[in-house]
Nucleic acid binder design. Structure first.
Length: 713
DNA sequence: GTTAGTTCTGTTTTT
DNA sequence: CAGAACTAAC
């Protein structure tokens, strides 16, 4: 039942906390929980929820679909629900919460732990789909066709492997790039089509090549004792289907399943959930169809739209009260999203004030846009006593970040770029990781190929090719072929010696690493032995770049050390898996600067002041998306996600001229701008001056002051 | 086997 | 324009 009194009390507390003028972007839930931890009991947590949230938390049996609009306390529902279940006597071991990203998992785990602190109860498992599956595979290894120490291939390794394969079977054609074929294969795998069931009736060349290559691809992966990301889930599903008793074991184990960001699940993940839920069907999924922006990656909106049909007796709960954004922002978002036809009807509301209008600003070009946004941030910081971290600049494509980075650097303002090239994707890191992978898994030809002549040790592609062929013919691993290089035809004695030496070295490191003692020290030694720093110095022409790359290597060694010190039973395999599955540096600390982030990765974040930039036709919606089925609607959802990140103030900017691929192009404003109601927006035409000091012309000066006046009022 | 010059191609991104 | 990938000449 509803508890009006306490609801009121709770929200006024939150409001107070949150709307202390320009307070930080803390989530109200977290802030409250940490702050009042000492006196809030579970009962009060429960009563502090609004009626819909309350119902979601206390409905513990059967299938439950929570349609949670942006900023409606979705994560809070999951965390409090977990705590509630435990409070009701459910063992923490019986509960599992599944997320997509490690970031989300970490955050959720942290919040649940906070909630449970008083009770000193063990926290339930919070895991991503992939790490959950990896764990299961590891435990049930003997039932799966994998050998010990198998390797997980990331996208680039997948690509490298496929390319080699294509060359081997003489199907490598430039017009059919490995990544395109890989995408096809991925689609097949995620539709549960095995190589044997492959439909060979395709007519176009790409289909023919895919049909031909897919079985080989899968065979090769197994030969290399490797799996790709899709396999992690598929192998578990296969395991469950072939071994009902094992499935039963996990069903008994995980009696309560919760899924976050359910709109992002693909068919395979959904199947896995169905299998795990079993007859009990204690499956609680939380998501927002309006925030589904990953369909290009296989996310299936059908999963959310069909949930009710698939699980008979599903209880559907809508969370429509928004605790994040002011009225005008919400209104703009609501109005925009109603232009989508395929969606579950819901409408966000707030009991908060309307707040300032959504400001739409036009600038002459991309550079002017950056100057305008940055100077606007400067002004707001001073006038509203805001911090750098209260601002976010959100763009459609990562290339946009550069303009803003340059401008922020020029003004010496701190900033953090979210996403982009990850630290572990750096070449030098991947090189070292390949060394570690081949040391761990001697069948991992892809890794050996990568480092065979890196640093240069005189083993050229011709010799490598011969060794590779030899390995293929004799059905031995490439590493073994290296060891016996002298027996291989066409490899000259000198080269053979070098190859054998490399193999020896790798094998000797294997025994050392396997002891699991001071692996960081071992790695440092390895780096030394192969002369990696010299290699970096010669590879990168300029000194400062080389120094930076060398620093990355040191950081990498440091992260291994960190791993060893913080892991209960550290192992080489464990570290490499962390690398593959949790692709983030250890210290992902918020540096407290202005946040630069793509629309996609802004999902789940919130900021008092948000600038969505480059809101032009062909950018949002992106020209490449509109041809695709439902592409426009997905782009609209993307815009919706961006808008709903803003708490207090939202700026939407576009430039009338933009440099694309080195040429200036005239642009037109995005159609989405017109889809927001006139009552909540304010248009400001504005040409940013090059620099405040450069303004000599009085007219421009006046104009600048006038518009700044409007903006700051 | 290595290196320097040339062509091509540009979303989004987690695991 | 800029980075990757590829080709042709040392």
């Amino acid at each position: 039942m509803q508890q009006p009194g306490s609801v009121r009390l709770f929200f006024s507390t939150v409001w107070h906390n949150r709307f202390r003028p320009w307070s930080s972007a803390d989530d109200p839930g977290t802030a409250l929980i940490t702050h009042y931890n000492h006196k809030w009991t579970m009962d009060r947590y429960i009563r502090s929820l609004n009626p819909a949230q309350h119902e979601a938390v206390t409905t513990t049996k059967g299938p439950l679909l929570v349609l949670a609009g942006a900023g409606s306390g979705k994560t809070r529902v999951i965390t409090v629900r977990a705590a509630y279940l435990i409070h009701k006597g459910v063992s923490p071991d019986s509960i599992i919460a599944v997320t997509f990203t490690n970031r989300a998992a970490r955050e959720m785990r942290g919040r649940i732990i906070t909630l449970l602190k008083r009770k000193k109860k063990k926290a339930p498992v919070v895991s991503t789909f992939h790490s959950l599956c990896l764990q299961i595979l590891r435990k049930e290894m003997k039932h799966v066709g994998l050998r010990k120490n198998f390797t997980i291939y990331d996208t680039s390794e997948q690509k490298a492997m496929l390319k080699n394969l294509l060359i081997d079977i003489r199907l490598y054609e430039k017009q059919f790039k490995p990544e395109v074929i890989l995408e096809r294969i991925g689609r097949l795998k995620n539709s549960f089509i095995t190589p044997e069931e492959m439909d060979n009736s395709g007519h176009d060349p790409l289909s023919i090549i895919t049909a031909r290559v897919y079985p080989e691809y899968q065979k090769t992966l197994r030969a290399l004792n490797a799996v790709d990301f899709d396999d992690l889930l598929l192998l578990v599903i296969e395991l469950f289907r072939e071994n009902p008793e094992i499935l039963e074991k996990y069903r008994e184990q995980y009696r309560y399943i919760m899924v976050d960001e359910y709109q992002d699940t693909n068919r395979v993940q959904y199947t896995l959930l169905k299998l795990l839920a079993g007859k009990r069907k204690n499956l609680c999924v939380v998501g927002d169809d309006d925030q589904s922006v990953y369909s290009w990656r296989g996310a299936n909106l059908g999963n959310i739209l069909d949930f009710e049909d698939d699980f008979k007796g599903t209880k559907v709960i809508r969370l429509e009260q928004n605790y994040r954004s002011m009225g005008n922002i919400l209104e703009a978002a609501n109005s925009l999203i109603t232009n989508n036809s395929k969606r579950m009807e819901k409408s966000l509301w707030t009991s908060d004030g309307t707040g300032p209008a959504v400001k739409i600003m036009k600038t002459i070009d991309g550079e002017g846009e950056a100057r305008l946004v940055v100077s606007k941030i400067e002004h707001l910081m001073n006038s509203r006593k805001l911090d750098y971290k209260d601002f976010a600049v959100i763009y459609r494509a990562n290339v946009f970040s550069r303009l803003f980075e340059e401008e922020l650097r020029r003004k010496r303002m701190p900033y953090t770029v979210v996403g982009g090239t990850s630290y572990f994707d750096r070449k030098e890191i991947k090189d070292l990781a390949s060394y570690m992978k081949i040391i761990l898994n001697k069948y991992d030809d892809v890794s050996l190929l990568r480092i065979a002549n890196l640093p240069r040790r005189g083993i050229g592609i011709t010799s490598i090719g011969r060794l590779h062929d030899h390995a293929g013919k004799n059905k031995i691993s490439l590493l073994d072929a290296f060891s016996k290089a002298s027996e291989v035809e066409g490899v000259n004695a000198k080269t053979a010696l070098k190859a054998a030496a490399l193999a020896d070295m790798l094998k000797s490191y294997r025994s050392v690493f396997m002891k699991g003692k001071d692996m960081a020290g071992m790695l440092a030694e390895l780096v030394d032995e192969i002369g990696f720093y010299d290699h970096i110095r010669s590879f990168y022409k300029t000194d400062d770049v080389a120094v930076k790359r060398a620093d990355n290597v040191k950081t990498f060694i440091g992260s291994l050390k960190y791993y060893e010190e913080n892991e209960k039973s550290p192992s080489l395999q464990g570290f490499i898996e962390t690398l593959a599955l949790d692709n983030r540096p250890e210290k992902e600390e918020e540096q407290g600067g202005v946040t630069l982030v793509s629309l996609h990765s802004s999902k789940g974040l919130e900021f008092p002041v948000v600038f969505i930039v480059g809101v032009e036709d062909d950018t949002i919606p992106h020209s490449k998306s509109i041809d695709e089925d439902g592409g426009l609607e997905e782009e609209r959802r993307l815009m919706y996600v961006g808008i709903t990140r803003a708490m207090k103030e939202l700026f939407i900017t576009y430039a009338s001229c933009r440099t694309k691929y080195g040429t200036k192009t005239l642009t037109i404003p995005s159609q989405f701008i017109g889809e927001m109601p006139e009552e909540v927006v304010e248009h400001i035409g504005f040409e940013a001056p090059a620099e405040e000091d450069d303004i000599k012309d009085v007219d421009i000066r006046d104009d600048y002051d006038r518009i700044m006046g409007i903006l700051n009022s």
